[in-house]
Design a protein around this nucleic acid. Structure first.
Length: 662
DNA sequence: GCTTTACTAGTTTTT
DNA sequence: CTAGTAAAGC
C-alpha cells in the first residue's frame, strides 16, 4: 500500500495535511487529545518512507520520555524510524556541546552540575565574597539559584527578576549581579556545565556560521513538540536550526502552557509566524481522547480565562458519564476512598496502568501512597525528585566524580563528610589541600593518621587508586562495595536504596568511560522516581500511575482521579496573589481534566492541616462556580453529610482554643 | 572551643 | 529532604 493511502486510513484530513507537509515552516495548533502524538509519529514515518535519512530528522520534545514514545511507535511501522534523532533541548544541547566543546574553549573532563550542586557552588561563592556574613539576611541557597537561573531562562536582568518575584531582595541587586558573573567565571575555569548552559552554549554555537551550517546540513527536518512551553532561548535555537532550510515544524497549544514559572512563553507561537512569515498554519480541533461531558468541563474551566482561547474541543466519542465531585472529611478519608475505588475498577477488569491519580503538589499524593502500600497496590510516582537526585545515588556518583576529576571540590566534600567523624569543616580543609597539592595522596596523607577517621580515609584512597585503571562498570562495583556499608548505616530503608545502586551498576555496563556515563545520567535521566518495590500481585500489568499535573502533560488514562482540589492547594497558595500565575493554574487544571478518557473523579478533603493548625478547605475556585458545578455529578452527598458533623465538632475545638488564648 | 551529630520544623510546579 | 539549632564529643 502506498504510504499516502496508509496515512489516509489512520488520520483525519487536518492530521494528514500535517503529516505530509514536509517542506517549509509549519505551525500546528493542537488542542488537548487531538492526536498530536499520533501525527508526529506518522509524520516521522512519512518522512522516512519518502527516503529521507532518519539521521537528518531532529525531534525536540519536552521530556525524553515523550521523544522515546513517539519514535518507538513510528519504529513499529518502519524500523528505520529508530534512527531519528530525538530528545529534549537539553539533551540535544549536551550532545552538540560535547562535539564542539573545543569551540567554546572548554577542556575535558567536563563536569555537570545538577541543581543541588549549583546551589552549593553559588552559595559557596557568596560565602567567599562575604555576602552571607552581613547582619541583614542574605538570600537562601535555593532562592539565590532561582533568581540567577530565572534571569537566564527568561532572558531578563537580575533587576527584573527581583522586581517580579522577590522585591524584598532588591537591595541585594548588585551583589547578585556580581555573583552571577563570578559564577559564570567559576564554571568556565573549572570546566563545569549546568542545565542553563546546555541551552546557552547551544545557542552560542549556533550563532557561529560554521557550526550552524554544519548542523543544518546534518538536520534537515526539525520538529518541535510542546512549543508553547519553550522559553526564549529554546525558541531562538529553533529559529537558528531552521534558518537555512526552513523545514521546521512546531506543535503547541497555548491553552496548555503551564511552565511560565520556568520561563516558558506561549507567545513563541505567535513569534514563530513572524520569524517564518511563509508558515503554513494548521489547527487540530477534533478530540479523540475524552467523552463530551469531560470536555464540557474542560471547556467551561478554560472559558473563564482572561485571555480568550479560540479552540473549543469537540468530542468524537459519544455519550459518557459526567465527571463526579466528592468531598471528604480529611486527606486520609480521601486517600482511602480513592484506593478503594481503584480496587473496584481493577476488579471490574480495568488494568492499573489505565488509571492515573493526579495532584498539584507532590506532597498531596503522600497520604495516598500509604493507602496503596497498605493494600499492596503497585504504583509509580512521576514528578518530583529525579532518580539521580536522591541522596544515595548522589553519594555514589560523588565517589565516581572524584575518580574522574580530582579537582571536583563539591564531590570531595560530599564523599569526605560521609566518613564518620568528618564534618563540613574538616572536609573543607582536606578539599583545599587536595586542590592545592600535586596529588590527592600527598594532600591527604597527614589526615590518614587521625585515630577516628584515619583508617576509613585510607581505605577510600586505596579504592580510588585501584579504580583509576579499571573500566567503568568495575569502578562502579568497586565504589559500591566501599559505599554500601555507609549506606546501610545512614538510611533505615537501605534495602530499597540498595536496589538503585544495583541498577546503576547495570547502566554502567553500557559505558566505556566515566565522563560520558556521568553526563548521560545527570543530563538525560527521565523524571521518574525509583520504583516502589512492592511484590506485584498482578504480573501482566503496569503499575498505577501517580503524578503531578505537570508531569502528566501529554499522557492519558481511561480513569483519572484528580485529588486535593482545595483552594490554596490547587490553585497553589503561592499563585493566588499574582494574576498571571493564577491564569497558569487555570490552564493547569485544564490540562489535568483533559487527561481523562472515560471517567473523571474530582476530590477534595474538607479538612486539611497546615503547620499543625486545622484549616477548612474551600473548593478550588475554578470549579466553585454555578456554570461549572452544573456540569458535575455531585451525588457523593453522603460524604458531605459526614463533613458537616465534623465541622460542628471542630467548632468546639476552635472555641476551646480561642479561650485558651485569652 | 571548635566540630560533629541528633533532632525538629516546613516543603509548588521541573529540563 | 534540608535548614537551623541544641546538645554531645574531642
Amino acid at each position: 500500500m502506498p504510504i499516502e493511502a496508509f496515512l489516509r486510513q489512520h488520520l483525519n484530513p487536518a492530521q494528514y495535511e500535517v503529516a505530509t507537509t514536509i517542506e517549509g515552516p509549519l505551525l500546528v495548533v493542537a488542542g488537548a487529545g487531538t492526536g498530536k502524538t499520533r501525527v508526529i509519529e506518522y509524520r516521522v514515518l512519512y518522512l522516512v518512507s519518502k527516503g529521507i535519512s532518519p539521521q537528518s530528522i531532529l525531534l525536540l520534545t519536552f521530556s525524553r520520555r515523550a521523544a522515546r514514545e513517539m519514535l518507538n511507535r513510528a519504529a513499529r511501522h518502519n524500523r528505520l524510524c529508530e534512527y531519528v534523532v530525538g530528545g529534549t533541548f537539553h539533551s540535544f544541547g549536551f550532545s552538540v556541546i560535547s562535539e564542539f566543546a573545543h569551540a567554546l574553549g572548554y577542556k575535558r573532563p567536563i563536569s555537570f552540575l545538577d541543581e543541588a550542586d549549583r546551589e552549593e557552588a553559588i552559595y559557596r561563592l557568596a560565602v567567599s565574597l562575604g555576602y552571607t556574613a552581613k547582619k541583614k539576611r542574605f538570600l537562601t541557597k535555593t532562592t539565590l539559584k532561582k533568581v540567577i537561573s530565572a534571569s537566564f531562562n527568561r532572558s531578563e536582568t537580575i533587576e527584573t527578576v527581583l522586581l517580579k518575584d522577590y522585591p524584598q531582595f532588591l537591595s541585594f541587586q548588585n551583589e547578585i549581579e556580581h555573583l552571577k558573573r563570578e559564577y559564570i567565571k567559576y564554571k568556565l575555569e573549572h570546566n563545569l556545565l549546568d542545565y542553563d548552559d546546555l541551552l546557552i552554549c547551544l545557542k552560542l554555537l549556533l550563532e557561529k556560521e560554521q557550526i550552524r551550517e554544519r548542523l543544518s546540513e546534518r538536520y534537515q527536518y526539525i520538529m518541535v513538540d510542546e512549543f508553547q512551553d519553550t522559553n526564549k532561548l529554546q525558541a531562538e535555537i529553533v529559529y537558528l536550526l531552521g534558518k537555512k532550510h526552513r523545514n521546521v515544524m512546531a506543535v503547541g497549544d497555548d491553552a496548555q502552557s503551564i511552565y511560565a514559572f520556568r520561563g516558558a512563553r506561549y507567545e513563541n507561537m505567535f513569534e514563530f509566524l513572524e520569524v517564518f512569515p511563509e508558515t503554513r498554519l494548521i489547527k487540530l480541533e477534533e478530540n479523540y481522547r475524552s467523552t463530551q461531558p469531560i470536555l464540557d468541563l474542560a471547556n467551561a474551566v478554560i472559558s473563564q480565562a482572561e485571555k480568550k482561547y479560540t479552540k473549543v474541543l469537540k468530542a468524537k466519542r459519544q455519550g459518557g458519564e459526567r465527571p463526579a465531585l466528592f468531598i471528604f472529611k480529611d486527606p486520609h478519608d480521601e486517600a482511602a476512598w480513592v484506593a478503594e475505588r481503584i480496587m473496584t475498577f481493577r476488579e471490574e477488569g480495568l488494568a492499573l496502568h489505565q488509571i492515573g491519580v493526579l495532584f498539584r503538589g507532590l506532597y498531596l499524593g503522600r497520604a495516598l501512597e500509604l493507602e496503596l502500600a497498605k493494600r499492596q497496590i503497585p504504583y509509580r510516582v512521576y514528578g518530583g525528585i529525579r532518580f539521580v537526585e536522591t541522596a544515595h545515588v548522589k553519594d555514589l556518583l560523588a565517589h565516581l566524580k572524584i575518580v574522574a576529576n580530582p579537582l571536583d571540590e563539591l564531590a570531595w566534600l560530599r564523599v569526605l563528610t560521609l566518613i564518620d567523624g568528618i564534618g563540613p569543616k574538616t572536609a573543607a580543609r582536606m578539599t583545599d589541600a587536595i586542590v592545592q597539592a600535586v596529588s590527592v595522596k600527598e594532600a591527604l596523607l597527614p589526615f590518614t593518621k587521625h585515630p577516628r577517621y584515619g583508617p576509613q580515609l585510607k581505605s577510600l584512597l586505596e579504592v580510588r587508586e585501584k579504580a583509576q585503571s579499571l573500566p567503568v562498570s568495575d569502578v562502579v562495583t568497586l565504589l559500591a562495595d566501599y559505599y554500601l556499608p555507609i549506606l546501610e548505616q545512614k538510611y533505615d530503608d537501605y534495602q530499597r536504596r540498595r536496589a538503585d545502586i544495583e541498577s546503576l551498576k547495570q547502566i554502567a555496563l553500557g559505558y566505556k568511560a566515566i565522563e560520558p556515563f556521568l553526563l548521560d545520567l545527570v543530563a538525560m535521566e527521565p523524571a521518574e522516581r525509583s520504583i516502589e518495590e512492592i511484590e506485584s500481585l498482578y504480573e501482566d500489568e503496569g503499575p498505577l500511575c501517580l503524578s503531578t499535573v505537570h508531569s502528566a502533560k501529554g499522557l492519558e488514562w481511561e480513569v483519572v482521579f484528580l485529588i486535593g482540589l482545595a483552594d490554596g492547594q490547587f490553585p497553589s497558595a503561592y499563585s493566588i496573589t499574582d494574576k498571571e500565575a493564577l491564569e497558569e493554574e487555570r490552564r493547569l487544571l485544564y490540562v489535568a481534566i483533559t487527561r481523562a478518557k472515560t471517567r473523571l473523579f474530582l476530590t477534595l478533603p474538607h479538612r486539611g492541616y497546615r503547620g499543625g493548625v486545622h484549616t477548612f478547605n474551600r473548593l478550588c475556585r475554578f470549579l466553585d462556580q454555578e456554570e461549572v458545578l452544573s456540569l458535575l455529578d455531585i451525588s457523593g452527598r453522603e460524604y458531605l453529610e459526614e463533613t458537616f458533623d465534623e465541622v460542628l465538632y471542630a467548632k468546639d475545638e476552635l472555641l476551646a482554643k480561642m479561650l485558651e488564648e485569652f
